[in-house]
């Protein structure tokens, strides 16, 4: 396998959607181990903070404070995972991070919308091991990605 970088070729762009679970950590470690050190790959790490409805807070101040805390937490995690990928062999300028706040009807829609915007060829997520009931009642990001993704591959890391 020729692993020399081809200066004329565009990098293969992977989007790794993460949350604060161990499942996301597994996805990061998998990509790091699988592709780390190979040239021609670019990674965007994406974390989506679901914008909570006002109903769950006694005041707007409480809601804003919750969002800020969550953003800080996920920012820290994105930076940590970026370092993991760099240590796995990705060049620093090939690993971006992105933090989004939103209230879409589904998280998978937001991931795919972002994938479309940045034009990456592969979406990577860690699989949450949910019971059937939980998947039924609250949905499953990986299942929805598999069903709804167009023009890209989806890697679901077990």
């Amino acid at each position: 396998m020729n692993i020399e970088a081809n200066s004329g070729a565009r990098d293969k762009h992977l989007l790794i959607a993460i949350d604060d679970t161990q499942d996301s950590k597994r996805a990061i470690l998998y990509v790091g181990e699988f592709l780390g050190g190979f040239p021609g790959f670019k990674i965007t790490l994406l974390s989506i903070v679901q914008e909570p409805e006002e109903d769950f807070f006694r005041s707007e101040q409480e809601r804003v404070s919750w969002i800020n805390d969550k953003k800080k937490e996920m920012s820290g995690l994105l930076d940590k995972y970026r370092q993991v990928l760099i240590q796995s062999g990705f060049q620093e300028d090939k690993v971006d991070v992105k933090l989004c706040i939103g209230d879409a009807k589904s998280l998978s829609d937001m991931i795919l919308s972002f994938q479309c915007d940045i034009g990456c060829c592969t979406v990577v997520v860690g699989r949450h091991h949910k019971s059937k009931t939980e998947e039924f009642l609250f949905g499953s990001i990986s299942s929805q990605l598999i069903h709804e993704a167009k023009n890209c591959a989806v890697w679901v890391v077990e």
């Binding site: 679901q50 409805e53 769950f56 009807k105 589904s106 998280l107 009642l137 609250f138 990001i141 929805q144």
Partner: peptide, 15 residues
């Protein structure tokens, strides 16, 4: 009533 949704906002309503 409201519930804190996760991956899909409306799946509990579908239930």
């Amino acid at each position: 009533y409201n519930y804190r949704h996760r991956a899909n906002k409306f799946s509990y309503d579908m239930f």
